[in-house]
Simulated assay, not measured.
Amino acid sequence: MKKIIIVVAVFIGVTACKVNPFTGQKTLNFYPNSQIFPSAFAQYDQFLSENKVVKGTADAQMITKVGQRISAAAERWLSANGYPGYLKDYKWEYHLVDDKTVNAWCMPGGKIVFYTGILPICQGETGVAVVMGHEVAHALADHGAQRMSAGTLQQLGAVAGNVAISDPNKRNLFNQAYGIGSQVGVMLPFSRGHETEADRIGLQIMAIAGYNPYEAAELWKRMKAQSGGDSPPEFMSTHPSNDTRINNLTAWAPLAEEEAAKFGVTKFN
């Protein structure tokens, strides 16, 4: 099994060829936008057709307003840091859906949905900007394509193990060990890393858009209170714990404020 993990690790190193503009680091991503975006756009349109989209209300208008400000701030940062045209294939859309679920998401290419259930926790425009910045950051950093790439490698590792091991009993043991090991040891940390990265990028972008980055930790305190502390251990979760996020956002807020000042933003909404 160690040999298989080494082979997969080497393959990851070879295929990690796209650079994240916000971190300067190479990422695991071998699915181009031209392949990902059309499918994401079609799925988004289908989702909207099957759900109750809220239109014309103050809340719906707020979602669009905040989304436009966040995406414009992202474009300003990217252009100023040597990535003009990075967003040329993005087709931004922002919709509010009538659903009590406490959630929001952004598909590759900039297709965003907020559920009405998250608005009471947001408590207004700045709270929406915290969530919007985080979701937009997932799209900016190509996290969707990276997850697909990691999933493909996970499957390749399983196939390689099953081909290499001829004994049925040993193969069953491998599958059990590989399934748990790759999930807990690789996939879940990979996902948590994306969430942490999106928190940091989103905080920076919301500040450039004119929203107070110090409010991000306050939103996650409300998220923690809403959950009642009922969550799995962090190492078993796709997301960092609420306390980890609160601590991170508190520490990063001054840095986001400094970044915003570079763009002439010294006062926040």
Rank of each mutant, 00 (worst) to 15 (best):
N162W: 04
P189G: 02
W105K: 08
A177K: 15
L153G: 00
C106F: 10
Q43L: 12
A73T: 00
G202F: 08
P21G: 11
A40V: 03
H138G: 11
Y44W: 01
G124R: 11
Q146N: 12
P21T: 09
M132G: 07
Q43C: 14
N242R: 02
T266I: 12
E195M: 06
P84R: 06
I12N: 09
L78I: 03
V265P: 03
N248Q: 15
L87P: 00
M132Q: 01
G85K: 09
I6G: 10
L249M: 13
P120A: 05
A198Y: 03
R69G: 13
G157P: 13
N172Q: 14
E75R: 15
F47G: 14
N212R: 03
P168F: 08
A253Y: 07
P254V: 05
P233T: 11
Y31T: 06
D59E: 15
G82A: 13
I63P: 05
G161A: 08
P38K: 00
A60L: 00
Q226N: 09
D99L: 12
T57W: 07
S231E: 12
A217S: 14
N51D: 04
A261T: 11
L188N: 00
T250K: 09
N20A: 03
L96D: 03
I4H: 15
Y44C: 10
K3C: 03
S71G: 08
W92T: 10
Q123C: 14
G109R: 02
T152S: 08
S227L: 07
E50N: 15
G179P: 02
S149G: 07
S149Y: 07
A216L: 00
W77E: 07
A216P: 00
F114P: 07
P254T: 00
F30N: 06
L78W: 09
F22N: 01
G110S: 08
A16V: 11
H143S: 00
A42Y: 13
L140T: 01
A160F: 12
Q204P: 04
